[in-house]
Design a protein around this nucleic acid. Sequence first.
DNA 1: GTCTATACAGGGATAGAC
DNA 2: GTCTATCCCTGTATAGAC
Lengths: 191, 191
Amino acid sequence: MSKQEFDVKHKIIVSAKKLFSELGYDGTSVRKICDEAGVSLPLVSYHFGGKENVFLAILEQLSKLPYFPETGDPKLDLQNYLEVYISFYRQERELSQIIRQELAMNSARSDKIISFIQATTDKLKGILENGRDKGVFKFESTSNNVRFILGCLTMTFSKSEVLEILIGQTDSSNYPIEKEVFDFIYKAIRS
Amino acid sequence: MSKQEFDVKHKIIVSAKKLFSELGYDGTSVRKICDEAGVSLPLVSYHFGGKENVFLAILEQLSKLPYFPETGDPKLDLQNYLEVYISFYRQERELSQIIRQELAMNSARSDKIISFIQATTDKLKGILENGRDKGVFKFESTSNNVRFILGCLTMTFSKSEVLEILIGQTDSSNYPIEKEVFDFIYKAIRS
DNA sequence: GTCTATACAGGGATAGAC
DNA sequence: GTCTATCCCTGTATAGAC
């Protein structure tokens, strides 16, 4: 792949990612992507073979989801888990927005997303169950609590202006939301 | 409005609601709505003046959001709040799914949704702040904690098959999720 | 009030020149 | 490898018959 070819593919990816996150998959046309990227329409088909594949190429970035070793200490593992993944998604605002949209839509593309994030979710499940076995955590249903935690995290990443109108700006800027979401979750599940 | 006219409008609304919740606004065409409803294409324009207005007519059902009196007791008010609104959204699965999608999309239609649910969110905010003032609840930022709670609730209502694949089925069916989400939230914010 | 037929804009993908 | 021009499909909305 030549330097120039790389540039075009890269420009398309960057523009598509921006537009998908703002307008959703259906709301983003190939024409808009190409206008944003400053390239002509057929280049999407030429380089990627269609809109769908541009989307999949963006999802590939999920394979860079960070890994961290587990210590076996439930509180510490939970803390690490939240820290690592929150910082990943905070750096990847557009990507997290796209995932949020697609999962909310139950779209056909969701299956692909799941295959990327399944391991992450399973890890959280493992941490919760380990904590419960050791008597550090206390809750009824693991999968329900995974749901709740993912719900909290989703809201934490979300860059939605709509939510800011609805809920209001964060009021204590000196206390970071990363810390507060851990407080919330840890208190919620500890014994 | 004649009986027959009511029936057609009603059929369109019911079909549109189902399809919007499954396919999203952009993914739902007027043709699909009419096929589902068993009526001809122009009737949407005739009765509603367009697809957008069908959507708004569905949102009108949000004005039936239940009201409940506040007692001033933070724990009780929180419990009532969660109970009332969870049961509303559990009865209105399709509607809650639509709201979830639209808010995730930051769509142009979100403003309308906000105007319906703003009061509900403000009420939750009030309950949290009252609880903190009385020393029953303990947290840093009200708006952050409203975010977390709404995140938990969103995941609780969500009928997404995708999430079931990702997280797994609820494992303890005898302990209702309505009860568990209260446990989770209450533990998270109490002193 | 409801239908069939159609207009017209916009979608994705491609043919063919360069 | 990249462009212009175009194809064909599907989207919404409407004209006009009944």
